[in-house]
C-alpha cells in the first residue's frame, strides 16, 4: 500500500486544558494498527511535545500523522510567531514560555529536544511572523 493512512487533528490553541488530546487519539489508533509498544511510545511523546508547543507558542495549529508501511510521518503546522534562532531553540532548557505557562509545569525547554530525541529524522521549516512546520519521521521496524 503506497497511499499512507492519514490522521488529521486540529490543535485548539484556546483550550490549554485539553492540550495533549491528539497524542492520546493517535496512540489509540496506532494500537489498533498493532505497531510495537516502543514505536507507539515514541510517536506519542513526539506528538505530545509538539502539540504542547503549538498551544503554548502558536495558538494552536494542525497535526497530520501519515502512516506508511515502513515509517510514520508527523507534520505539525502552525501560523505562530516562528522561531528566530533554531539552534538556540534546540538547546535543552531553552524556553521563551511565559511565567504563567511555567507555573503550570510546562516551558521547561525540553519540547524540541525531546521531539528530536524520539524521532529518527526531524526538520523545522520556520519563518518569523509567518509560522512553523515541524516534520518528524519515525521508522517502523
Amino acid at each position: 500500500m503506497s497511499e499512507p493512512l492519514v490522521f488529521h487533528y486540529d490543535i485548539d490553541g484556546e483550550d490549554f486544558i485539553s492540550a495533549g488530546q491528539a497524542s492520546i487519539q493517535i496512540k489509540k489508533n496506532l494500537r489498533r494498527i498493532g505497531l510495537s509498544p516502543e514505536v507507539i511510545r515514541r510517536v506519542s511523546i513526539a506528538m505530545y511535545e509538539g502539540e504542547i508547543n503549538m498551544v503554548i507558542h502558536a495558538k494552536g495549529g494542525t497535526a497530520d500523522v501519515m502512516l506508511y508501511e515502513d515509517r510514520i510521518e508527523i507534520i505539525l503546522a502552525d501560523k505562530g510567531p516562528g522561531i528566530s534562532n533554531i539552534e538556540e531553540a534546540m538547546q535543552e532548557g531553552f524556553s521563551t514560555a511565559s511565567d504563567t505557562i511555567r507555573s503550570l509545569g510546562f516551558g521547561a525547554g525540553m519540547g524540541l529536544p525531546n521531539m528530536k530525541r524520539y524521532s529518527d529524522k526531524m526538520t523545522i521549516d520556520t519563518t518569523v511572523g509567518v509560522g512553523t512546520t515541524v516534520t518528524m519521521v519515525i521508522n517502523i521496524t
Binding site: M1, L5, R31, R32, I33, G34, L35, L67, E69, I140
Partner: peptide, 10 residues
Amino acid sequence: RLSGSIAESM
C-alpha cells in the same frame, strides 16, 4: 489490534 498484519490493519 485490528489484525495480525500491519498492512492488513492499515
